[in-house]
Amino acid sequence: MTGTETQTERPEAYLAGIGTFLPGDPVDNATLSKVLGVNQDWVEAFIGTKTRHFAKDLSTGEVQWSLADLCARAADRAIEDSGIDPAEIEFVVMGTATPDTLMPATVNHVVDQLGLNQLPTYQLQSGCAGAVQALDLAHGFVTSGRYRTGLVLGGDVCSKHLDVHMDFSTVPPSELVNFVLFGDGAGAAVLSAEPGARRIAVHRVLNRLTGLGRAPGQVIEWFGIADRNSDKQAAKEDYKAIEESVPVMAVEILWELLGELDWSAEQLDFLLPPQLSGRMTKRIFEQLGVPGAEEVSCVAETGNNGNALPFVQLERLAARIAPGQRALGVAVESSKWIKGGFALEMV
């Protein structure tokens, strides 16, 4: 490049539309406590989550929505919110920890429900950071100029691990807590090279594995035909490690993003903290130490629905943010200690 040449400015990516879908009516702690036979006061004190949504009927165990159903409904709402023609979507990328099947990938069932075809699809197998990983991939596609418009999806159906007919008195506490902590849901965003009506620019996306040499904080087993009747616990967490590590990692993510953008904490108008549970999220937000930023959280009302959470936060943010305001989202995945985050500004 000669001295007279100027480098082409890298394209920006924008959240042009956002949509979410939570199945059924909210299930409160009193209702869930009766099903599980646990103390309601313990749920409210230890977890701090008031309600959650399930894709199955708790009284019968009947599955009413698949993950693909939830994601397709969220996608419809995001596309409608963006005002684009669905035919303009050039790629779809999805993050989930609970796919409907290993094959076909759930993202392809979603695309089929949307009536789309002849476009690349991607599915990322990941927990709480999966939505950010999907956003990272889509952000790279748009800012590189490879595509102009894409659809980002995230969702989980955690109730697939909940058998309402089981004897919960025999379930160990380390497994029982999952049934009060988690919920189901899906979210979607249209990412575009054009500002659209939302005019929310995605300036940075952080996506980094940091768990070298560390034991997983969360494990979800996959059972094949040979071991599906085994006694292995389907989902388990190291809550002590999670409670110790996630707040520390959240602070590191916050300051790393601020440093990359040359933003000060005082310039933040909104902060989207990790959504573990009502109690843990409150603790993490306080530890982040940005009192001038407004908290945007949802987990106390939605339950921990995994990859849907960032989209629910984004939907709530979009209703509050004004031109010139900035927001920063933080996500931590404890399965193998992944740092995730994103920085937004309404232009």
Rank of each mutant, 00 (worst) to 15 (best):
D76L: 07
G115M: 03
D81K: 07
Q123D: 01
E88K: 11
N108I: 08
D85Y: 04
S82T: 05
G83D: 06
N117H: 15
H109V: 12
H109T: 15
Q113I: 01
D85H: 11
G115K: 06
L102C: 01
M94K: 03
Q125W: 02
I79M: 14
L119S: 04
L116I: 09
P104F: 12
Y122T: 15
P99L: 07
F91M: 14
T121F: 01
G95E: 06
N108E: 12
Q64G: 11
A75N: 12
T101G: 00
A97H: 05
I89K: 07
S66G: 00
Q123S: 07
Q118L: 12
T101V: 01
P86R: 06
G127I: 02
L102N: 04
M94T: 07
I79D: 12
V107Y: 07
D81T: 05
I79V: 15
G130M: 03
V111N: 09
V110G: 08
R77G: 01
T96L: 08
N108V: 13
T96A: 11
M103H: 12
S66L: 10
L114F: 10
P104G: 12
A75E: 12
V107N: 03
P120Y: 01
C128D: 07
Q64M: 13
Q123W: 02
D69V: 08
A78Q: 03
A129H: 01
D69P: 11
A72W: 07
A68Y: 03
T101A: 14
L124W: 03
G127P: 06
P120D: 08
C71Y: 05
P86Q: 04
M103D: 11
L102V: 14
Q125F: 09
T96E: 12
A105T: 12
I89V: 15
N117T: 15
N117D: 14
L114K: 09
V111G: 11
D76Y: 00
S82Q: 13
D112F: 13
T106H: 07
A68Q: 07
I79G: 10
G127T: 04
F91T: 04
V110A: 10
D100N: 11
A97T: 13
V110I: 11
A75G: 13
T98H: 05
C71V: 03
A78L: 03
I89H: 10
A68R: 04
A78S: 06
A72T: 07
R77F: 00
Q125R: 11
A105K: 09
D112G: 10
H109E: 15
Q125H: 14
G115N: 05
Y122R: 10
E88P: 00
